[in-house]
Design a protein around this nucleic acid. Sequence first.
DNA 1: GCCCGGGGTTCACCACTGCGAAACATTTCC
DNA 2: GGAAATGTTTCGCAGTGGTGAACCCCGGGC
Lengths: 169, 169
Amino acid sequence: MDVVLVRWPEESEHLAELRASGVPRLLLVGPDSAPPAATDPLEDWVRLPAEDRDVRARVANLESRAAVTSARPSLDDDGLLRYRDRWVSLSPVERLLAVALVGRYGAVVGREALSKQAWPDGAPTRNALDVHILRLRRRIADLGLEIRTVRSRGYLLQAAATGRADLAS
Amino acid sequence: MDVVLVRWPEESEHLAELRASGVPRLLLVGPDSAPPAATDPLEDWVRLPAEDRDVRARVANLESRAAVTSARPSLDDDGLLRYRDRWVSLSPVERLLAVALVGRYGAVVGREALSKQAWPDGAPTRNALDVHILRLRRRIADLGLEIRTVRSRGYLLQAAATGRADLAS
DNA sequence: GCCCGGGGTTCACCACTGCGAAACATTTCC
DNA sequence: GGAAATGTTTCGCAGTGGTGAACCCCGGGC
């Protein structure tokens, strides 16, 4: 994931979005501004004016941190879905669906497979899968994950699109 | 834990020790040296000459990172639960519950296990556990700790969610 | 263009269960 | 005795899974 440069404090609104969505960022702190306080390892700052090599070094560091942290959601033994530094608990059915989706993270999982996973002995209703996908979607939204629909193929779990411009349309 | 200032690259031997032992550190990079590359969140650097306020800000950030990362609640023999720089006293039953929760800090502990821990010979009532969890919750709130419920699975002890002003009051 | 249908989303509703929380009763300990 | 600790009961709410129905979007047939 690419590091975003943000002027601070001028673009603090933008910064809030980036923080929320976990995008690594380098704050460019004006000569007269106080440096920011943040414990997030994916955030760093430089005092302007700055040497080019220093900015590059900080960007590179943030990139490698992001690569290390490079988040894949994981499902622990307790039925918790963990992603980055947050987690949500899943209900039993949602957990089964999540097993399949996390197992093929970033790839399409067919409705058939999902249905089989959640209800090995047959789904109660055709609609049941849709409803549980809906509920799972709402839960994982807090984590910055989303389930995309691939029409007539299935569903796909991925990191939520940042900025959300494409979701608004 | 205190942040250690290290000249770089002059004191690279000393730096290796600090990295190995997980001590937060700020590297003071000479005017002619290339900045270091490190993904460790407990390491940062400044280019010399540096403004005093900038050094202080980076030290403060490293300190709070160390506090967040390393902070684990601990129980001493007197039944005191310590976290960061504060503590609360616990009643005997609460202490037993805390032992189990602290032992699996950040992970789910089943109601079963908690019940066994507090009452090895069998819990007085199914509801007794709920009540003691409730009381324990109220005590540790002052420490910045919280017990989250994972429905039908158990409870989980963690640092209180930040950014919630209503919890701070 | 118009209508229609398949695929998918969302909502409202129901029955059920787990847990929260208050209120009260009882015991323990200084 | 009195305060803290513990046990018990009860009420209610919120999470869960299932179901039906309305709606929306898109593409195909006419």
